Simulated assay, not measured.
Amino acid sequence: METRIVVYPVLTIVVPCYNEEEVLPETVFQLTTMLQTLISDKLIATTSTVLFVDDGSKDATWTLIESFHDSSPLITGLKLARNAGHQSALLAGLMKAKTYSDCVVSIDADLQDDTSVIREFIVKFHEGYDIVYGIRQDRSTDTFFKRVTAQGFYRLMNSLGVKIHYNHADFRLMSKRTLENLEKFQEVNLFLRGMVPLLGFPSTQVYYDRKERFAGESKYPLRKMLAFAFDGITSFSVTPIRFVTIMGFLLFALSVVAGLYAIVGKILGANVTGWTSLVLSVWFIGGVQLLALGLIGEYIGKIYKEVKHRPLFVIEKDLTATGRDHELVHTPSNQVSSSR
């Protein structure tokens, strides 16, 4: 009679953090409790952990991570040498976790995403799905302005041909092989919620209700949200450039019509009046030109960042079992970095 050996998947929960000292103790409690439950239910391996990525915090976030790491084998951490941004910090955790994990769940530290949904993620992973997206059922906890602008953003992205999941942020599960293929992407301008669907592996969705922030302040004020949205649009679509081109043709056609009108009026001896409309026309065309130049400059700036191949992040300290004492970097090129 054959003896069947059951191998449970190693799960790592990656949590990017920036100045999260107020909420971190509760985050650690909820995520470690979830891990212990999944381990006891024989859904994941006993070596599963939570990986906190400190994105250059200025408060006691890293000190707390070190303290929790010393008191619990379930807690590990990475400390970035500087603030690299949410997407780069998340990628740092994902790339580190993929080296020793079978699947990775990414979640923000603010506990707005429902941690109990992680169990459903794991169930879907056992069913054969490589990517499981956490989708918000509604936006009742958002302000009216944030709800309208967020919905408008998703509609705009879809109309531009960018495949992203409606009401999905960065709460998802990814298998090891999807992360290995994600590493092949060389973008410096990261927009992970647009990059992950491009992988094309079997995927599904899990719906949940988003909660209020447990403690602390939001790290995404209006300015950052608008910048993030604009970055996502320009990183995945050239439609804005094409729109400028079409608008240029339309303005050229209008100028030809206006020129013919002026010539005919001159021939017929009509007096040219309306200096106000003339000035407004000049200002309008001038504004359109500046807008077009700014948009083109934005794309050129992205190209400038891409061709420099600078590291997306530098890891100062590594508390994982595979961590090393020397400095680690990740580059977006095909060159092998010291973190791999």
Rank of each mutant, 00 (worst) to 15 (best):
I44A: 04
Y8L: 14
S339N: 08
D113W: 09
I303E: 04
L250D: 07
I233S: 07
D170N: 15
F121L: 10
D138G: 08
T99W: 04
N334T: 04
K224V: 09
H69E: 11
P9E: 07
L254Q: 14
I300D: 01
P202H: 02
G259M: 14
K58G: 09
T234P: 03
V162Q: 10
K224L: 14
F52R: 14
G152C: 09
E120L: 11
K224N: 15
V105Y: 00
G259L: 15
L91C: 02
Y100T: 08
I75P: 03
S140P: 01
S106D: 06
Y18M: 09
I107Y: 02
Q335W: 01
K124F: 00
Y166W: 12
D142T: 11
V288Q: 15
Y208G: 10
E212N: 14
I135H: 10
V336F: 04
N271L: 03
Y100L: 07
P25H: 14
F125L: 01
S159P: 00
S175Q: 04
T276S: 08
V307C: 05
I241D: 00
T234N: 12
D142C: 13
K146M: 11
R310F: 06
H165I: 08
T276L: 12
P73D: 08
S203N: 11
I285G: 06
G265N: 15
V10M: 05
V256S: 06
C17P: 00
V314W: 05
S255V: 05
Y166A: 08
G56L: 10
P332W: 12
Y154F: 13
F313D: 02
T143G: 15
S88W: 04
D54E: 07
H86S: 09
T32L: 05
N19C: 07
E21R: 15
V162N: 07
V188P: 01
Y133G: 05
G77A: 04
A229K: 15
V264W: 12
F185I: 07
I44T: 01
K317D: 12
N158V: 01
A89T: 05
S203D: 13
R340L: 05
I164R: 14
L173H: 06
F191A: 08
G161M: 06
K317N: 14
L293P: 00
G161Q: 08
C103Y: 03
P311Y: 12
I65S: 11
K211T: 06
E20L: 05
R340T: 01
F243N: 11
I39H: 03
M195E: 12
L173M: 09
L94D: 00
L24H: 04
V14A: 04
G56P: 10
E187M: 02
L74N: 02
T178S: 12
F228P: 00
F121P: 05
S235Y: 03
G297Q: 06
F125A: 05
I315R: 13
Y154H: 08
T49M: 05
Y299K: 09
G287D: 14
R177K: 11
L319H: 04
Q137D: 10
P25D: 14
N167P: 01
L291D: 04
